[in-house]
């Protein structure tokens, strides 16, 4: 359980985090979304006890971070931005070091190391200095050290940055398979990642919390949420579509010829559309329901905040 109240952080004149308040419960997989410089990393640095807040309170597992930082840090696994690691060490030495700091000993330590090495697939590079590894491997070493002690709270700053699509998939699977009673916080620029792994989204821009709900609720804010798109194999009269019950607007893309019908809020329009298509024998190639477009919602929310 993480409880944040009126958290602020400023660097001189610059306010990086502005009066944030939120609670995170076990089982929450939270995605921090926001433009660059929005205050995501700063918030994470304060949650992990690296930075001291300028104002406000952070409590983790009923302990205040300014009083019990070390006890709190024992419960947290943290992947800092850029996955820093000691370059002169090999991944094996590095994981041994972290495991010892995490209080693991003997057989249990070996078992945990073997376990995380398998989870993030590091076998092939275990004995190469970290500084010689590719970006993807470095990131995975960082992930491995964060989860080695099976923490209750996992905080990861851009865990998939610099990974190829396969590795991204792997990391998402890893997050998804963590026990259900843990707290996971990730920050990302990648919008799909949020719908893929998170059950809660927080959008932060200019240090302020602008949105805090489920990924589904975020999608629902999109104009495209449950809109119906269709393509015709040759041009036909489609004017009738715009007049259908529940259709708020129709948009035709010039290049592809794709027609999108936007529903009025809360209305289902699919059956009206299919009926209309059948009745007028429209030459429909493809027809699908839009899921909502995150990039558009993201832009709307974060730029609204700027005004």
């Amino acid at each position: 359980m993480i409880s944040v109240k009126n958290l602020s952080k400023s660097f001189g004149e610059f306010v990086a985090v502005d009066n944030l308040s939120f609670d995170i419960r076990p089982g929450d997989v939270v995605g921090f979304l926001g433009p660059n410089g929005a205050g995501k990393s700063t918030t994470m640095k304060m949650l992990t006890g690296f930075l001291n807040p300028s104002a406000g309170e952070i409590r983790v597992a009923d302990m205040a971070i300014d009083q019990s930082a070390k006890q709190i840090q024992e419960k947290i696994g943290y992947l800092p931005e850029g996955a820093p690691a000691y370059g002169d060490m090999t991944p094996l030495q590095f994981l041994n070091f972290i495991a010892e700091v995490r209080g693991l000993k003997g057989e249990e330590k070996q078992k945990r190391i073997a376990d995380v090495v398998a989870k993030v697939e590091l076998h092939s590079v275990l004995d190469r200095p970290i500084e010689n590894l590719s970006k993807g491997f470095k990131r995975r070493v960082g992930l491995a050290q964060a989860i080695i002690h099976d923490p209750d709270i996992l905080i990861m700053d851009e865990p998939t940055d610099g990974l190829d699509p396969n590795q991204k998939h792997q990391v998402r699977e890893l997050i998804r398979h963590l026990a259900k009673d843990k707290i996971v916080i990730i920050s990302t620029h990648i919008l799909e990642e949020v719908t893929a792994v998170c059950n809660r989204v927080m959008i932060i821009a200019q240090g302020k919390l602008l949105f805090d709900s489920t990924p589904d609720a975020l999608l629902q804010k999109s104009r495209y949420y449950r809109a119906v798109s269709l393509r015709l194999s040759y041009s036909a009269d489609i004017t009738g579509l715009a007049e259908l019950d529940g259709v708020a607007d129709m948009q035709v893309e010039q290049e592809s010829g794709q027609v999108t019908l936007f529903p009025e809020p809360g209305k289902e329009i699919l059956h009206h559309v299919t009926e209309h298509v059948q009745r007028h024998k429209l030459p429909v190639d493809t027809l699908f329901i839009e899921q909502g477009r995150l990039d558009e919602v993201f832009r709307e929310i974060t730029q609204e905040g700027q005004r």
Partner: peptide
């Protein structure tokens, strides 16, 4: 410079 200080200081080491 390498940022490992963030790692070191967020481990339970004073």
């Amino acid at each position: 410079k390498s940022g490992t200080i963030e790692l070191l200081m967020t481990l339970p080491i004073t």
